[in-house]
Design a protein around this nucleic acid. Sequence first.
DNA 1: CATGAATGAGCGTTCATTCAT
DNA 2: AATGAATGAACGCTCATTCAT
Lengths: 192, 192, 192, 192
Amino acid sequence: MGTKEDLIEAAAELFATRGFEGSTTLEIARTAGVTEPMIYYHFKGKHDLFTYILTEAFEEFFALLKAVDVDASTEFKKIEKLFEAYYEFVARRPRETSLILGCCPPKLKDAQETCRQNFDRLSSWLEKFLTRCLKKGIRGGEFKKVPVPQTVNLIVLIIQTLARQRALDGETIPGMKEAAVGFCKRSLVKSF
Amino acid sequence: MGTKEDLIEAAAELFATRGFEGSTTLEIARTAGVTEPMIYYHFKGKHDLFTYILTEAFEEFFALLKAVDVDASTEFKKIEKLFEAYYEFVARRPRETSLILGCCPPKLKDAQETCRQNFDRLSSWLEKFLTRCLKKGIRGGEFKKVPVPQTVNLIVLIIQTLARQRALDGETIPGMKEAAVGFCKRSLVKSF
Amino acid sequence: MGTKEDLIEAAAELFATRGFEGSTTLEIARTAGVTEPMIYYHFKGKHDLFTYILTEAFEEFFALLKAVDVDASTEFKKIEKLFEAYYEFVARRPRETSLILGCCPPKLKDAQETCRQNFDRLSSWLEKFLTRCLKKGIRGGEFKKVPVPQTVNLIVLIIQTLARQRALDGETIPGMKEAAVGFCKRSLVKSF
Amino acid sequence: MGTKEDLIEAAAELFATRGFEGSTTLEIARTAGVTEPMIYYHFKGKHDLFTYILTEAFEEFFALLKAVDVDASTEFKKIEKLFEAYYEFVARRPRETSLILGCCPPKLKDAQETCRQNFDRLSSWLEKFLTRCLKKGIRGGEFKKVPVPQTVNLIVLIIQTLARQRALDGETIPGMKEAAVGFCKRSLVKSF
DNA sequence: CATGAATGAGCGTTCATTCAT
DNA sequence: AATGAATGAACGCTCATTCAT
């Protein structure tokens, strides 16, 4: 495999487990089996390498999410699909999930970050998607009359933390996804 | 105020906003208005200072939780009280909440950490408390028949992430606590 | 002697002989008999150390020049005094002369440099001083009718290059100052 | 044009503007539109490339100087011719003039440098040439009785610094050459 | 209690150079 | 003739920690 791929591989692993500041360029290079300057041959620097990995991960994740936003027999089915998309991504890219949902480095708080844009894009996509679901479901009599923005936030929170848990620790309690879907269903769907 | 308190104050603020690795001993000392070696006079080092702050915070938090574990008219009331205890702690110690629930420094993953013990103690306390609640509630007919360990994990997850959100960003969406309690109530309580 | 002074001493020596880019912080520290981080304890960095030395040198030099700008029996006496001021400075601070007049690092070309301001200040002072001398001398019949701005530039050039030569190589040809003064006198003064 | 010429062109430009240490092999290669290893195909290394450029420049310069050393009606005419040779070279090869007369890299101080030999050869040629001029002129009554070696050094100094000034900054003050020639003439020639 | 001064170890980064192709 | 990939060595700088006072 190419050196660049090795570097990405090594960096993803280390960033996910030790964080950005906690991983050194020397460690990354050594883990990749090359010397430090190779990082600077393939990337502009440590930060660029980090951004590259995150951007790639976000792209793949957004592609997965796109498949969620389609018609379904009920509104709750759509929410269920969202759970599945997250679980799918965790399964395929556990390390990247840690990076996206996990302990985001304090740096990402700065608005000028490229990565920050992806975070915001994800948040607003989720918000719009779930808001539409809930409103339609309530109007159509499928859902109970729940406060929309707060419930949206709750569902996002549950999905993301669940995915993060799974990415970091693995499936410690089996059947979490089904339980979470059930938990939400009981809380939302009328005839249940 | 004493120097030690100034140091704790400054360190708590910096650790909460910049993270452990992102805060330097020089910054901490300067913010506290003293010189660096004072850190080593009062504590064994940067790490010890961090541990001290976290341990103190945990103690206060555990004291708050103890008040939750008393009799209540219904099992769900107990869960509601747990929500309130978390919100109370966030209100009183927002910085410490960030430290306890927020992006925990990767170092804390090491099992030998003193802090890790507190995390585990909190987890197991919550698990035991909620497990008892749920089982009693189900047996007594108050709750629907939900899968206990998974639901326990879900409630913990919701409470903690909610508290963390509030500590980090403030009450961005008003009425989140009530919405969360309602969300859980609908999902759990039979006659609702 | 204090560490800061040792660092200044070592840095002045190295900067003068090897240039800014050619001197490393490690060399400077070792020559001063301390470790590298001491540079960063006493100065903001390598660049700041350089600026400090140059600024100090310029101050001393300007003080010397101030003594030149006084009344004298003839205009040429003033020019002679300027030669002497330069030679005095070379004798007292040979290394600093090398820095001020010698191979200025390419960086100093940037207008935003603090040092650049000193260079410009020196240039304009010399220009004004000599322009006044020459004009007065010509008007008063002491000097021949020479083209003023060009002759000013020539005298500056001679003085500075001579001083630089002396700072870098020492007095290789004896009696250079007297010869230079004579050279200019023959060229400028009428009754000679 | 061949790759080697492109490299020389690019390197001359960069060395002249940024200095030897300030120019990197990557920059040189990129400016030349080739890759770094080409430098090592055509030259022994960065240093060799520098030496090559300087040596070439010196050769051309020496050729120009040879034309100066011929008979002329007066000794001062010869000196005037020397001024013209320098100005001719500046006009034809401004970048190389910067390299030869400009802030010579500190490395060139080492005696073992190939370039150093050229510098010395130039110096001694100038010294011999001007010494002969002055002695003849004094003996023949054309020149005033000036101290020879010092005056030689002064004339060299004036010519070289003037040429350097022109190469680095352009003709900032017009008529400098004429003024310089006039300055020397008044100082040297008796019937003037 | 408190500090100014000092340091070992390490970090991200750059650079001239080399090598396999 | 030319290049992509790779590296050893060094550089400017930071940081947690220590020590003499």
